[in-house]
Computed example of a mutant assay.
Amino acid sequence: MRTTIGYTLESIGYVVGAQGLVSFASQTLFGTEWGWMHKVVDLPSTAYLGIVVVGLALIVGGVKMRKATERQEVA
C-alpha cells in the first residue's frame, strides 16, 4: 500500500512541478498563460516557482516512501 501511495505522490509531484514550471516560463518569457494552473489560481510569476518546489517535494517524498517500503520487503 505504501508503494502505491509513493507512486501516487511522485506522479502528482511531476504534474504539479511541470505545471508550475510551464506557468512560470510562459509568464516570464512570453507574457502569456500556458497550462491549466492559471485557470485554477491567479498568481504572480514568482509564486509559480513555489509551486515547482511543492512538486519537487512531492516527488522526493514519494520516492523516499517507495524506497523505504522496498527496503522493508527485502529485510
Rank of each mutant, 00 (worst) to 15 (best):
M1E: 12
R2I: 01
T3Y: 11
T3E: 01
T3R: 09
G6C: 02
G6M: 05
Y7F: 15
Y7E: 13
T8L: 15
T8C: 07
S11Q: 10
G13Q: 09
V15D: 11
V15A: 12
V15Q: 08
V15C: 11
V16P: 03
G17D: 07
A18S: 11
Q19I: 01
Q19E: 14
G20D: 12
G20V: 07
G20Q: 06
G20S: 02
L21I: 07
S23W: 00
A25M: 11
S26M: 07
S26E: 07
Q27C: 06
Q27V: 06
T28Q: 08
T28N: 01
L29A: 13
L29E: 05
F30Q: 00
G31H: 08
W34H: 03
G35N: 04
K39R: 14
K39G: 00
V40P: 07
V41P: 10
V41C: 03
D42A: 00
L43C: 01
L43K: 00
P44W: 05
S45I: 01
T46R: 05
T46S: 12
A47M: 05
A47S: 08
Y48G: 03
L49T: 01
L49M: 10
L49Q: 02
G50W: 05
G50D: 08
I51M: 03
I51S: 00
V53T: 06
V54T: 09
A57N: 08
A57I: 11
L58F: 08
L58Q: 02
I59H: 00
V60C: 02
G61D: 00
G61V: 06
G62E: 10
G62Q: 03
V63Y: 13
V63W: 06
M65I: 15
M65P: 04
M65W: 02
K67T: 13
K67W: 02
E70N: 03
R71Q: 15
E73I: 14
A75I: 15
